[in-house]
Amino acid sequence: MRITLGMQTNETLLNLNDQQDQINTLSQEISSGKQLLSPSDNPDSWSQTMSTNQTIREYNSFLSNVNFATGWGQTTESALNELSGLLSQAKQVAISAGSSTGTAESGALATQVNGILQQALSIANTQYDNQYIFAGTATDTAPYSINSSTGAVTYNGNTGPIEVKTNMSSAADPGMTTVNLNGEAVFGGSTSGGGSNVLNDIWSLEQAITSGNSSGISNSITTLGNDFNQINNQLTTVGSQLSTLTSQQSALNTMVTNEKGVLSNLQDTDIASATVKLSQAQTAFQAALQVTSLLDNLNLSSILSGGAAG
């Protein structure tokens, strides 16, 4: 092949450009720490990166919901623990009221029961994050009130579950977790329809003690015992909900970590291999430069100028 000046210059330039381009790409990958800088670098990986980022974002939102549900559950648990204590206290009072005779003593016991009633009422209207936890989904109004003269309890809440999203939804699994306990299942609903209610039961005890109705008192011992069991059942429910939430939380954390690993595999530069490639490219570039400078001297005119012309 006939070698001409234009050819040599073109090829040298092209090769040097190619090598510099390679060095540039590699050093960009190393300095940015990312090998996936734009969709065209690898459209499939890019799309995977996008959906992984979205998954991580969703998991983080699930984690926030799980934390919310856990807080709600813990508030519920401590409220119920307190209520269960109050009920056993009321039962003790009823037992001692059944064996007492003096009116003065009855008055003191009745006052004590009234105190228990007020505390139970305030537990029934417990708030978490400014929301009434025993109100079903009507969380913005206090659910329970009691008429102190008739003992009628009004429930302003409903039986609706509060649900938050803690998993991807699919046709089989909407991915929702129920946060609240049914208020009616804990305390009972309104008494206007003749239903029973924990608050009403405590009020009845107070009435029975005040009026010295001994059969009423012994009746209260039974109803309060039932209420106590009912609360303890609800406590068990909350406890299992909380333990589910804890395992959900650790599962979500693991999944976020996994997804981040996937992300890193997709977009991060393998620094070790990139560095090795870079040093190879540098060596090749240096060699090319050296060859170029060698070519510069490799022509007839530079040798002839030695004096052959004379």
């Binding site: 996008m50 980022n53 979205q54 974002r57 969703e58 983080n60 939102s61 699930f62 926030s64 919901n65 919310f68 994050d129 400014n130 929301q131 989904t137 969380t139 913005d140 509060i162 649900e163 938050v164 999203k165 946060v179």
Partner: peptide
């Protein structure tokens, strides 16, 4: 993508305290 994800997450958080 981020704005869309945040939009849905905001709704998801709204479920915690709708009002």
């Amino acid at each position: 993508s981020e704005a869309l994800g945040n939009f849905f997450n905001a709704w998801s958080t709204l479920a915690q305290d709708p009002t």
